[in-house]
């Protein structure tokens, strides 16, 4: 078992706390089917891969990938980068990753470029991302929270306790509220994949049962350019309402 990065410094009143979905990503990406796939897909002599996590939250997933780069990707010349719409999450991620990659095993670790405060992949140049990870806001909700109002509030000092509580609630809602079918944000990310991913790019996206992962896979397979989508990890097989699965999306 590879150690889970420490996130004890993170304030979970305003940043998503690592949960079953985060751990499913860690387990899936560090187990042999996926590590074998990644080792073969990104051979050691090829240019340094760029790994992007979208919506890093506490940073636990990105820190895990960075700290265990050699185990997961078969090479430690890996560049890692994160984005999140929540500025507190960006700061938390930067700290979590830096803590995880320094220390006695730093020779195994990837290079951490930084965390960007941004919407999904919007700051990235086209065709640069080789591995993209997304644990989206997947819970079906009536409406999506307004990300702008949450961000504007971050910049205001001297919030009353009530205003601060409402801001924090909005920031947390951004991490789970997925709108119709829980897919509104994920659909926007899926639209960006063909542009953001490099030719060898592969995306791992976590979905819950209500997102209807089989229908999502069918849709991706119809994209022009020969895309594949497979379920490579799952949990909660007891017909729980939040059965989770991880899709791998790539062009073979």
């Amino acid at each position: 078992m590879l150690p889970t990065p420490s996130t004890s410094h993170v304030n979970y009143d305003r940043v998503y706390e690592p949960a079953e979905d985060s751990y499913l990503l860690l387990d899936t990406l560090s187990a042999s089917p996926e590590t074998t796939f990644l080792h073969n897909h990104l051979p050691p002599s090829t240019p340094t891969p760029l790994v992007l996590e979208v919506g890093t939250g506490s940073g636990v997933v990105l820190a895990f990938l960075a700290a265990n780069a050699r185990h997961i990707f078969g090479r430690s010349d890996i560049a890692t980068l994160g984005t999140d719409v929540n500025n507190y999450a960006c700061k938390a991620t930067t700290r979590t990753v830096n803590l995880a990659i320094t220390g006695p095993k730093s020779g195994e670790a990837a290079v951490f470029c930084g965390t960007l405060d941004g919407d999904l992949t919007s700051p990235l140049r086209p065709n640069v991302v080789d591995v993209l990870i997304f644990n989206p806001p997947y819970v079906p909700t009536e409406a999506l929270p307004d990300s702008n109002s949450a961000e504007e509030a971050v910049d205001r000092s001297n919030l009353s306790p009530n205003e601060a509580f409402e801001r924090d609630s909005r920031l947390l809602a951004l991490s789970y509220a997925g709108g119709i079918d829980g897919m509104e944000t994920t659909n926007r990310l899926l639209e960006q994949l063909p542009v953001t991913l490099s030719d060898r790019g592969v995306a791992y996206i976590l979905l819950c049962a209500q997102n209807r992962p089989e229908a999502v896979k069918d849709r991706i397979r119809l994209w022009p350019g020969g895309w594949s989508a497979e379920t490579v990890g799952s949990s909660g097989k007891q017909a729980g309402w939040e059965k989770l699965s991880i899709l791998r999306i790539w062009r073979p």
């Binding site: 960007l116 941004g118 919407d119 919007s122």
Partner: peptide
């Protein structure tokens, strides 16, 4: 603080 803000 080292974090670029790309929100529009």
């Amino acid at each position: 603080e080292g974090i670029a803000n790309f929100l529009l």
